[in-house]
């Protein structure tokens, strides 16, 4: 498999698009757009998984793709959007600071990932090597995002990006066992963090963790 062949090219484009979305996440200050970008990345991951399943002839990757699409492309974004509505309007954007710095940092991290992955993986297939480099970049960008951003939603976005990068790495390696388990475990982790955050938001807003406190406010977001 090499450049100019369809399996390589499509995987290449999907991985690159995910990387691009990671940069959008790093750049974007509006929470609504952040959630949209996250959904897009989830959908792209699903497509990459399905494509890899088709190329490798590994049907379990279709399941991974389905999980990614349903959970990351649809459910979590919907949930995050709901949570966003609960935030005060002032929290819908973050103050723009250090955009240039974080973008330059992101570019340097990508270069670092490339320089690390390529020499280590000599002998592997071109597709896998490239996927690994992109996946590592996405993971590092997610970490950078968690470092540079303060709002909790952006932190979640960073965590999810990291998890997306992990799954991308896993599906790129032919014959990797337990891919489904891995992606599910990652999802559970993300869900747990979201739940924790949700609890914190509730706590800040209502000074209580009692969900009954929510009932009087039902329908307020609309």
């Amino acid at each position: 498999m090499g450049i100019g062949e369809l399996p390589y090219d499509v995987a290449h484009v999907l991985g690159g698009a995910m990387l691009l979305v990671s940069f959008v996440l790093l750049y974007q200050r509006r929470v609504a757009s952040l959630v949209n970008a996250l959904a897009l990345q989830g959908a792209l991951l699903a497509m990459a998984a399905v494509w890899q399943g088709y190329v490798q002839g590994a049907p379990q990757l279709y399941v991974t793709g389905l999980i990614a699409l349903v959970a990351k492309g649809v459910l979590i974004p919907i949930f995050l959007r709901r949570m966003m509505r609960k935030l005060a309007p002032g929290h819908h954007t973050e103050p723009a600071s250090n955009i240039g710095l974080s973008m330059i940092g992101g570019a340097l991290l990508v270069a670092l990932a490339i320089l690390v992955v390529l020499p280590v993986t000599t002998g592997a297939k071109a597709l896998a090597r490239e996927d690994l480099a992109v996946a590592l970049s996405i993971i590092l960008l997610g970490l950078l995002m968690m470092l540079m951003r303060r709002s909790a939603l952006a932190q979640i976005a960073g965590l999810m990006t990291m998890e997306n990068g992990l799954v991308l790495a896993a599906i790129g390696v032919a014959g990797m066992p337990l891919v489904i388990e891995l992606s599910t475990a990652g999802l559970v982790l993300v869900a747990a963090v979201i739940a924790g955050l949700f609890a914190r938001v509730m706590h800040e807003r209502f000074d209580s963790l009692d969900t009954d406190m929510l009932d009087p406010h039902r329908g307020e977001g609309r």
Binding site: I3, G4, L6, H12, A17
Partner: peptide
Amino acid sequence: GALGLRVSLLFAAL
């Protein structure tokens, strides 16, 4: 057209 689909070209185009 011997180049195939290239992410780098996508990025450069943007």
